[in-house]
């Protein structure tokens, strides 16, 4: 196999991932609206297509054709570039995520991962956290007080919860001894009983909670909560620039769902009679549903309560978990 073949294969994979995940992100907005509507005793989108299924196409057309408004006093280059950072970092992070078990297509073995680097999880988390710059720069370049407040909230929230994410994942990594997501997946090959969630329940819960904060979901959706900071960093954005933030957010949600499934819930290993590919799809569907379910059920916290939760509750617990894991391993 020549180098050219690898390049072509990677390009095809990258385009596939981009297309599929972007499609999933768009579809997730439809699912979100329908699931929330169901829980809130209303219908949700109903008018465009059967059961409103074409609503997302209509939304897409609307976003693309809307006037692109750039406020006069904003810092224009940054204002324009900021929305691109969000989806860019979210999609780049997916390069190291193994989505499915490897399979054979026309006699050619496909590894459904763009780049199997041996520090996969570090890469995913590192690149995903670059996404923080999108709301931060957007908020600061808008020259709008609400956007500024939103940006400030972004920094405190995402930065703080990076710590929890990192620390909570450290304990499982100590057990596995590898940073490659494929290795983490293979570690849990022995069926449901070998899932890391059973061995590291605390890490699992902490990672989940941090995931809600990192993806800006209720009860930690403080960055752009309407009733307090109007629309946060996105106050001055409209049209597709605003849409890009949205795509990034949903892509992040999908990434986090993949990560939780791979690290804690046995990844794409087959369960009983369910093949691995389907198993992981079911898992991430469950987590996306969980995100929506929580949104429908709970109010959100106040920024200072969020900080209290992060630094006084979750971080000590994560450290304790590492300590305990260390003692057990020795």
């Amino acid at each position: 196999m020549g180098e050219m073949a690898i390049v072509i294969e990677t390009v095809i994979k990258a385009i596939t991932v981009l297309a599929v995940v972007a499609g999933m992100a768009a579809f997730a907005t439809y699912i979100e609206r329908k699931v929330l509507a169901f829980m809130q005793r209303r219908l949700g989108p109903m008018h465009v297509g059967p059961h409103g299924i074409l609503q997302l196409a209509a939304d897409g057309i609307k976003l693309f054709t809307k006037e692109d408004i750039v406020p006069q006093n904003s810092i224009k280059p940054i204002f324009k570039i900021a929305p691109v950072i969000a989806p860019a970092s979210a999609f780049t992070a997916m390069a190291a995520v193994p989505f499915f078990p490897e399979f054979t297509l026309f006699g050619y073995t496909v590894h459904p991962i763009i780049a199997d680097i041996n520090v996969g999880i570090l890469f995913v988390m590192g690149v995903a956290s670059v996404g923080m710059y999108a709301p931060l720069l957007a908020g600061m370049s808008s020259v709008n007080k609400w956007a500024l407040l939103g940006a400030a909230r972004t920094v405190i929230q995402l930065l703080s919860f990076e710590v929890v994410t990192g620390l909570s994942i450290l304990a499982p990594l100590m057990m596995i001894g590898s940073l490659s997501l494929i290795d983490i997946n293979d570690y849990q090959m022995g069926g449901v009983g070998s899932w890391l969630a059973w061995k590291q329940p605390l890490a699992f819960v902490l990672f989940m909670i941090a995931g809600f904060a990192e993806t800006n979901r209720t009860p930690f959706d403080l960055i752009e909560v309407e009733s307090e900071v109007v629309s946060g960093y996105a106050t001055d954005y409209s049209g597709m620039r605003w849409g890009l933030f949205f795509v990034g957010e949903y892509a992040n949600m999908i990434t986090v769902s993949f990560l939780v499934s791979i690290i804690f819930l046995g990844g794409y290993n087959p369960i009983w009679f369910i093949p691995g590919g389907l198993a992981i799809l079911l898992k991430i569907s469950f987590f996306i549903f969980l995100f929506l379910w929580v949104r429908a059920a709970w109010p959100h916290v106040r920024p200072d309560q969020l900080m209290w939760l992060c630094w006084k509750v979750l971080m000590p617990l994560a450290l304790l978990n590492i300590l305990l894991t260390g003692i057990v391993l020795i």
Binding site: L36, M39, Q40, R41, R42, T218, P219, D221, V225, S227, E228, R295, A296, A297, W298, P299, H300
Partner: peptide
């Protein structure tokens, strides 16, 4: 008041 708190579902439970 509940909507301001982010508890959106209650809005429909009370407004219906």
């Amino acid at each position: 008041n509940l909507v301001d708190m982010g508890a959106l579902t209650n809005y429909w439970y009370l407004f219906n």
